[in-house]
Amino acid sequence: MVWWVAFWVFVIDQLSKIWVVHVLDLATRLQIEVWPPFLNFHMAWNYGINFGLLAGDAPATRWILISVALGIVLFVLVWMRRDPPGRLGLISAGMLIGGALGNVVDRVLYGAVADFLNMSCCGFSNPFAFNVADIAIFAGAFGLVLFPSAKNT
């Protein structure tokens, strides 16, 4: 189950990036209003981790972040094998793995993660952009905290 969830998260993430960044040409246009202010596409090449933390355009930073992401994927896989959680935990692990691998592919192909989703509401203007992989990583990590063992699902 982990691999199926990871596969579909990865595919949805990469297809959304291809569609928005290349087909809609967000890489050149930089901004597309979809449903203002709730949903807009804003091109942001993220060289760091969430919210641009640890950002640096240096090749060393890029490969360190790729290594960290792959290390996390390996850690989660070993964890799932040694102490398998219930169904919700496995789904959560797959989401985290698929999202992490989606962002790894971005770093390999582009040197940075392609972030494009921007959401604001109710007088709050969000300056940050994210992508489908980021959502999956966050939801997967949250799910692993909530559903770490088969007893909780």
Rank of each mutant, 00 (worst) to 15 (best):
F124M: 09
G98H: 01
M80P: 01
S67T: 14
G98N: 03
P148A: 07
L96F: 13
L15K: 05
G99A: 06
I18Y: 15
S16N: 09
I12P: 00
C122I: 05
I137D: 10
V113C: 11
W79I: 00
D13H: 07
R29I: 13
G86D: 05
C122E: 07
Y110C: 10
I72F: 07
A93F: 06
L26Q: 10
P148Y: 06
G123E: 11
G98T: 04
A60P: 00
G94P: 03
A114Q: 12
S16V: 10
G99M: 02
V104D: 10
F10A: 08
G94C: 03
I64T: 11
N46A: 09
T28A: 15
D134L: 11
P84K: 02
P36Y: 06
N46D: 07
D13Y: 06
V145G: 06
V78G: 00
L90Y: 00
R81Y: 09
N46T: 12
V76A: 03
N118I: 06
L53C: 00
G102H: 09
W19I: 13
I18H: 14
V20R: 11
A129M: 09
I72C: 10
L30F: 08
V20G: 09
N103I: 05
N152H: 14
L88M: 14
V76K: 01
A112R: 13
R87F: 10
N103K: 03
M95A: 15
F116C: 07
W3N: 10
I64P: 02
A93C: 06
V132D: 03
G56T: 05
